[in-house]
Design a protein around this nucleic acid. Sequence first.
RNA 1: GCCCGGAUGGUGGAAUGGUAGACACGAAGGACUUAAAAUCCUUUGGCUUCACGGCUGUGCGGGUUCAAGUCCCGCUUCGGGUACCA
Length: 927
Amino acid sequence: MEYSFREIEQKWQAFWKENNIYKANINPEKPKYYVLDMFPYPSGAGLHVGHPLGYIASDIYSRYKRLKGFNVLHPMGYDAYGLPAEQYAIQTGQHPAVTTSKNIARYREQLDKIGFCYDWSREIRTCEPDYYKWTQWAFIQMFNSYYCNDEHQARPVTELVEAFSEQGTEGLNAACSEELKFTAAEWNAKSEKEQQKILLNYRIAYLADLKVNWCPALGTVLANDEVSEGVSVRGGHPVEQRVMRQWSLRVSAYAQRLLEGLDTIDWTDSLKETQRNWIGRSEGAEMSFKVKDEDLEFTIFTTRADTVFGVTFMVLAPESELVEQLTTADQKQAVEAYIAATKKRTERERIADKRVSGVFSGSYAVNPLTDEAIPVWISDYVLAGYGTGAIMAVPAHDSRDYAFAKHFNLPIVPLIEGCDVSEESFDAKEGIVTNSPKTGAERRGGLVLNGLTVKEAIAKTKLYIAEKGLGRVKVNYRLRDAIFSRQRYWGEPFPVYYKDGMPYMIDESKLPLELPEIDKFLPTEQGEPPLGRAKAWEIDGYPLELCTMPGFAGSSAYYLRYMDPQNDKALVSTEANEYWRNVDLYIGGTEHATGHLIYSRFWNKFLFDLGVVCEEEPFKKLINQGMIQGRSNFVYRIKDTNTFVSLNLKEQYDTTPIHVDVNIVSNDILDVEKFRNWNPEYKNAEFILEDGKYICGWAVEKMSKSMFNVVNPDDIVEKYGADTLRLYEMFLGPIEQSKPWDTNGIDGVHRFLKRLWSLFYKGDEFIVTRDEPSAEELKILHKTIKKITYDIENFSYNTSVSAFMICVNELFALKSSKQAVLEPLVILLAPFAPHVAEELYHLLGNQGTVCDARFPVCNDAYLVENTVKYPISFNGKVRFTLELPADMSKEEVERTAMSNDQTAKQLNGSAPKKVIVVPGKIVNIVF
RNA sequence: GCCCGGAUGGUGGAAUGGUAGACACGAAGGACUUAAAAUCCUUUGGCUUCACGGCUGUGCGGGUUCAAGUCCCGCUUCGGGUACCA
């Protein structure tokens, strides 16, 4: 019998499906293990060979855990809302729901071929009303909550209302957009509308006028993580700043917990570091500066309180509310012109343009420590959204302030002993402080920092300003609230209606609020979002929200829904949540480091505060799979001809490299006939060959259609089978490393499976015997068990595949086909190559499924070696080896080595200075 | 600029401080075959030698050590993330 993978794979895939082998149920008798893949956005292009990499890795782990006796939850679904389907709808009129379900069907077909152990009964799609009902529900809970900074958790807004009516803002410590102060009497006197407006300032889901990333080409607002270098991540369209009324989530309230939580989870250091940087905690001080000759003061934020004696000017962000107050009459025109010019520029232009710009406001601030009057400038290098939107500029010790001071000829006062600021600023937080205050400018009882280190000076200044009421210690975060409105059609509708211009939540009993049908997927003539086209988009006569939710809405809690996907009473039942708890192993790409992986953690923490979920962190362990790059092939056309020259001859001609479809190239040799048929342009192509072959050039590039280097897993499965694909993807290299896909090596793993098969069948004869295995055979088996177990636990799957190859090669060399060795081997292999393993498991006489076998355990007794091959080295260089008994003493090894003829030859008369014997390892003779 | 990763044969990669290059691809040679495919066997880092062997070798330069791909210091270079965050 031949290894006929097609037959085997179809047979067992059908068997698994019919017998619900991968159905997961709550079972308190067994420990749970939850393995999750980042669910895909079903794009029209289908899966390429890079996508399943992580899925195969998680599948192996799921199957391994099951063999180890765990009750494994391993679900899959689709992140079904998204821009591409909508853009396609605009172009073709095809409803995004239609495109999406077609794409999903295609994805499913491709996934099914690979033999994953997903429990498909738990499939979710974010665009299904049954699913997004709970996305809307969570939004309502966020609207009805505020974040209490004293209790460090979300609390009901009703508690806030109660507090306001009893004591106003007195004693309030809540996360908010703006610090407000009012009394109970003032609150109670306010109208419903005014009160609602104030509450928005505290709600976790809130509506506010914000400076947002507006992308005109997409016609929508984008979140910070959806914009990179001034253009949209999707499509690369320019993004500009615009103030708009938008829904936002107060993610910033959770900044500290998001930061601290990182210490409790098992993620890679680099990913944690990325999140830490994104959260961007910085400890500093807020300090108030009075405005000279005015009854005004404003607050700045600094992490370098120690440099307050070196402040030579102040800078406001152009968007700051203070600009209006501080601009004097004679500077008004200049300031307005500057602000107008700044507004016109897109984010991208501002980033690209490194030129210093700014304008003097006309006002002066007073340094509270020196009483010096210092000019207040306005410049776009200060951001409105960070800190207070105002800074004290210390050009000697901040490079941006330095550039500004140089440009506008402002004074630079160095504050560190011996630092040279003639060419650049001294930004390092080290050295001894001087000039603080300057000699002769000391004040009685004033702050003196001279002689201290920077660190000491910062601490002393903070203490001083707090005591004197000049400011306070403050922690700032770079993390911004997440803008949650999108002016698009294909997303979750907000469960929101408007009454008197104020937002209200629709009743939970009316959920889900379904996405309405519209005639065209474009904004209305009035520039409203597409939902403005929906008929009767209102509730009880009140208009509904026209924006929809962003892509990350549906992916923020999907891992919870898998625990209890059909529940229509709750997002997840307490029973299911308390059993499955959180994701034990999450596998996905690093590209979600600052988006999905922050939002999910936030969302989960919020639900944790509500008592809906029992674990504060959603993903205990996370592994990033590397990207699979493409390996492109090139042909070389001689310029202005239709003649192509083989790689090693191309230097003799003037050629243009042209991408050629990798699917018509094998081992870099071009199939010339297929090439002629590939494109009509090449029908009459001529070739200059070498050794009768056309050899292509190659390069590693992104896998994409335009490079003609896309490899479809379906084709691989068709030609070699799913088990070969699975093994080969793992064999390519460490899971977390990026590497190019090169189909060339695949024959190796396919040969391995054929050789494994040959241990069972010789021709049509089944040759497995029940004979007792020899010590040698048992050693081969147990060595493999040990290695595979270790490798799976450490996600080193590439070396596991090698270990299987070594094992089979060794058994093959011994012509060994014994049940007692092959059966454990088949079980070991089952997580990697489940189809062939299932077939062989049954051939060995087993019933049921190999998925429920018991993972073999290594018996070290079989691994004991009687002898050790000692490498004998001289001055670190190995010259020969000696085979000695394993239990030989150190002294005896030394004596044996020294008395050897070859040793005498190597020493050549010299006396050894030192002999190092590492028992069981090596001997090194130094002379 | 800053923060993370990498750099080992023609290629993908392996190696708790202890014989660098496991395993696999490719290549070369051979067996089987009328032939091809498949399969099997041998060789395969470089230089050198008829051969035994020798020299050299993990991006570069130093260092620690009996012993360094592995640890430390300083560079080069390639990926990825981030960008006026005060």
